[in-house]
Design a protein around this nucleic acid. Structure first.
Length: 904
RNA sequence: GGGCCGUUAGCUCAGCGGUAGAGCGCUGUCCUCACACGACAGAUGUCAGAGGUUCAAAUCCUCUACGGCCCACCA
């Protein structure tokens, strides 16, 4: 397609930089990434997991998108009308946190600049990030339909969010209620259950005495959170616990606070843990909250949303959680209530975005009722309408859906979809500055626009719920919102549902499950019928990559250094199903080398090319054994690659292509073909080149989804010989399996030839014969078929093993060469008469060592074959295979013994 | 506390019932006319440990040890 890629200008070493930049542009200009809804092709669609607009892409994104691009290009090459939708996610808390850091660096803050200005800053930042991210995706070679770029908070997606919210509301699946939620004190917002991570931390178990109000000794409670005692309303013990039975119903005096609280009985308490007595703080502990409901206990809030002790905390009011704990322990100790302090490591909940310790806090939030939604998702999982690869993720996914709890979707942050609910200030008796999540029983109306007046009292002042939705709420709608849902348009009809979703396992519940639930509920369809779950990328030592640890690898830097194809190769070949990738820069070397190998293979082919018009005039090609052999190996390779791709084992598919190109095609076929390609026989040359170009062209096509740049560059020249040339590789067809039949004779002959070459090369190396020196070879064999094959392909043996004057001994009765080094293969004995070069003592030792090995093998084989159980129970093929191996070993042994005898 | 996964060559990983493999690294020879990001020849493993099933086990089963991950309200 372009003149700049003349073979003359091709470097010995492939240099990716210019090539890549050029193709990124060509592809973009040609519009081949765009979908073609009008074509008479079967659609195949997928949506990008939209990266958060928090900065630049990392290696994890590179892996995720390389896998998708692999599939996208592959499916196009299988004739699908492909639609891969790009986009980004506003990223809620995560992005807001990034901006807060920026503001802090500017010596200001979110609160100081105010909501409006803050939102403006976020929008500017978003634009900037989008540009970076999309640019990086292009550089990675991603064949996304960039004309469809979406953002989770753009106008169309806003419409989808409103529609979803409204429908959930109308169907009674959305409610505002007071719950004990996971509250991040730093972010100042509620989080859903799955946004809380658990981390084992060192801690203490403090034993505190609660005396009886009447003056008795009372009992001792054990707690990890002494500061919550300010909000204690009871102490619970196990009903049957003899130690405390007499205290049940009595009053205790709460130390420091002097409140009287009852001793209650509750089956929840484990008598064996701690002291067997549990302090009950319904406002600040999930278990206690439940107990509070069972026993109708009051809730005393002693910790505020900012993490400080409230007025209820009396003396301690205004202290932070941490300071309050210290002071309370001190005071308890001083007043003699602290009985014991034990170290007690336990898991604490931390915010998945800022790692701050989560505070269970009572507040009014919006929740999605999930039971029914999950039931739908479970059903499609059971009947295989939705499949997960690798299947090992099916059970965890299923269990999560079975155990699902209501989804807290409101967030007290500024960056996100505003909740489309309006409250009348008058009816609700509230003001603009109210802390909404602390106000009970608000009455609101769902509306996208501000209602003109309150429908109940006609008051004109209405205020929108100040909270925003969980960022995963809009993410859950992504597979259909990107096509314009709730509009009923052509795009949606053609490309929805999508075929596959590619993502990492860390967001199976946060995202995959929610898309399934919402997709089924809102569209009645499984949003994607398959999920391809990959691992996450860690550093060399297995640690998660993070900026704070300083162990991140920048994909762009790697692309610049080794080439994008090398990066893609490296990522895919390490992406074993269900496994994380321990990624280091070293792993790019193999990719770079392979890219270069492919490049040079093409270079070789083109340097020895026969022009297409000339090639075309040859009526029939004279295929030689090696031609048939490589075509048949090529055939096998295509089939096995297809099988691996079928089960989404891209690493194995990659490995198969790698091995074929390097080990079979380059190391054997190309070397064999050289003789003809560089020889005088034009007809032979044409045949060899035809085979060479056919296989190479096919391999280049197959490798395109993996390494789009180098293959496209090569193909731009190679396509002259393509029988169905395409403008771009992506628009060509994945190669057909060639219809070639290889005879058993040829197959065996080629194996024998390869064996012979290897054996002679090894002999040369052991004798220290310099590579340039041609050696005379005498071949002896009783095997007529193999001998004939070798005779017919003698030139190849000579060329590959560096032999000359190769002669044959027709039978073993002829006198054997005495002054020669020798080597035996299953079919042949080779003599290399090189008097003067050979130390016969050493030679004899070498042969004896070889004999030792054969005898060892033989021992094992004979033992096997002398076992009657083996003979009667093992499969027929297995036994005959062993017999064959035994025969071969016996023959080798006899010949080696003879050689040793002759030398002695 | 439940569940899942892993433990194979120095490192990262394949193999998952028939005599141990790859990439990188390592050793030796070669700058041989596609490629030194290369060619050729090599070295390297009681396949975590112990039992069991089987004619046969790295591969299947059980237990143990050590890693890792997910879920979970033991104060």
């Amino acid at each position: 397609m372009n003149e700049t890629t003349e073979i003359k200008t091709w470097d010995k070493a492939y240099s990716p930089k210019d090539v890549e930049a050029r193709w990124v542009n060509h592809w973009a200009q040609s519009g081949i990434f765009n979908s073609h809804p009008d074509l008479n092709q079967e659609p195949y669609s997928l949506v990008i997991p939209p990266p958060n607009v928090t900065g630049a892409l990392h290696v994890g994104h590179a892996l995720n998108n390389t896998i998708q691009d692999f599939l996208a290009r592959l499916k196009r090459m299988s004739g699908k009308d492909l639609c891969w939708v790009p986009g980004t996610d506003h990223g809620g808390i995560a992005t807001q946190t990034v901006m807060e850091k920026i503001l802090k660096a500017e010596n200001t803050s979110r609160v100081r600049i105010g909501r409006e200005a803050f939102t403006q800053r976020m929008e500017d930042w978003t634009l900037h990030c989008k540009e970076t991210i999309l640019g990086q995706l292009k550089k990675l070679g991603c064949s996304l339909d960039f004309s469809r770029e979406s953002f989770t908070m753009d106008e169309k997606r806003k419409a989808a969010v409103f529609e979803a919210f409204k429908k959930l509301w109308d169907d009674g699946l959305l409610y505002r209620g007071e719950r004990l939620v996971n509250w991040c004190v730093r972010c100042g917002t509620a989080l859903s259950d799955i946004e809380v991570e658990h981390e084992e931390r060192k801690g203490n178990l403090w034993h505190i005495r609660y005396p009886e109000a009447s003056g008795g000794p009372g009992l001792v409670v054990a707690t990890t959170r002494p500061e919550t005692m300010l909000g204690d309303v009871a102490v619970a013990v196990y009903p049957e616990d003899k130690r405390y039975r007499s205290l049940i119903g009595k009053k205790l005096r709460l130390p420091l606070v002097n409140r009287e609280i009852p001793v209650i009985e509750d089956g929840f308490v484990e008598s064996s843990f701690g002291t067997g007595a549990v302090k009950v703080t319904p406002a600040h502990d999930p278990n206690d909250f439940e107990m509070g409901l069972r026993h109708q206990l009051p809730r005393i809030k002693v910790i505020s949303p900012s993490g400080k002790i409230t007025e209820e905390g009396g003396l301690y009011a205004g202290l932070s959680r941490e300071d309050a704990r210290k002071k309370i322990i001190q005071d308890l100790e001083f007043q003699g209530f602290l009985e014991k302090t034990e170290t007690h490591p336990h898991a604490v909940g931390i915010c998945y975005r800022c790692q701050e310790i989560i505070e269970p806090l009572l507040s009014w939030q919006w929740f999605v009722k999930t039971k029914d939604l999950a039931a739908g998702a479970l059903k499609t999982l059971e009947n295989n309408q939705f499949k997960i690869y690798p299947a090992s993720w099916k059970e965890p996914y299923r269990n999560w859906l079975l155990d699902i709890r209501d989804w807290c979707v409101s967030r007290q942050i500024w960056w996100g979809h505003e909740i489309p609910v309006w409250y009348c200030l008058k009816c609700n008796a509230i003001s603009k500055d109210s802390s909404f999540h602390q106000i009970p029983n608000l009455r609101g109306v769902v509306s996208r626009e501000k209602p003109k007046a309150c429908s109940v009292c006609g008051h004109l002042e209405l205020i929108q719920d100040p909270d925003v939705l969980d960022t995963w709420f809009s993410s859950a709608l992504w597979p259909f919102s990107v096509f314009g849902w709730p509009e009923k348009n052509q795009d949606l009809q053609r490309y929805y549902p999508t075929q596959i979703l590619v993502t990492g396992y860390e967001i199976i519940y946060l995202w995959v499950a929610r898309m399934q639930m919402m997709g089924l509920y809102l569209t009645g369809k499984v949003p994607f019928s398959e999920a391809f779950i990959h691992g996450i990328i860690r550093d060399k030592k297995g640690k998660k990559m993070s900026k704070s640890l300083g162990n991140v690898i920048d994909p762009i830097e790697m692309m610049d250094k080794y080439g994008t194809d090398a990066l893609r190769f490296s990522l895919i070949s390490q992406a074993r199903p269900g496994k994380d990738i321990l990624f280091s820069e070293d792993s790019l070397i193999a990719g770079r080398n392979f890219t270069n190998k492919l490049w040079n293979t093409a270079r070789f082919a083109l340097m020895n090319a026969v022009a297409p018009e000339e090639l075309g005039t040859v009526p029939n090609f004279q295929l030689e054994a090696a031609d048939v052999w490589i075509l048949s190996e090529y055939q096998k390779m295509i089939l096995s690659v297809q099988e691996e791709i079928e089960i989404y084992n891209l690493a194995n598919a990659t490995e198969k292509m790698y091995e074929f190109l390097w080990d079979e095609f380059c190391d054997w076929y190309v070397e064999i073909a050289k003789l003809r390609l560089q020889g005088a026989d034009l007809r032979a040359k044409k045949t060899a080149f035809r085979v060479l170009i056919t296989v190479l062209n096919g391999v280049v096509k197959m490798l395109h989804p993996l390494m789009p740049f180098v293959t496209e560059e090569i193909y731009s020249v190679l396509k002259t010989w393509d029988t169905e040339p395409a403008d771009f590789l992506m628009n060509s067809r994945f190669p057909n399996v060639p219809e070639i039949k290889i005879t058993e004779e040829t197959q065996k002959g080629m194996s024998a030839l390869i064996e012979a070459v290897k054996s002679l090369r090894s002999l040369r190396a052991q004798l220290g014969i310099s590579p340039g020196l041609k050696i005379p070879v005498i071949c002896q064999s009783e095997d007529a078929a193999e001998t004939n094959f070798l005779k017919e392909n003698l030139l190849y043996l000579a060329a590959l093993a560096g032999g000359r004057e190769i002669s044959f001994l027709s039978s073993k009765r002829e006198s054997l060469p005495t002054k020669a080094a020798s080597t035996v293969t299953p079919h042949f004995t080779f003599y290399v008469p090189l008097e003067g070069l050979i130390d016969f003592k050493k030679e004899s030792e070498r042969l004896k060592k070889e004999l030792g090995k054969v005898e060892n093998d033989l021992g094992k084989l004979s033992q096997k074959l002398s076992d009657p159980n083996y003979l009667s129970k093992a499969a027929m093929e297995e036994v005959s295979e062993t017999r064959f191996l035994q025969d071969t070993a016996l023959s080798k042994k006899a010949r080696l013994e003879e050689l040793i005898k002759v030398l002695a």
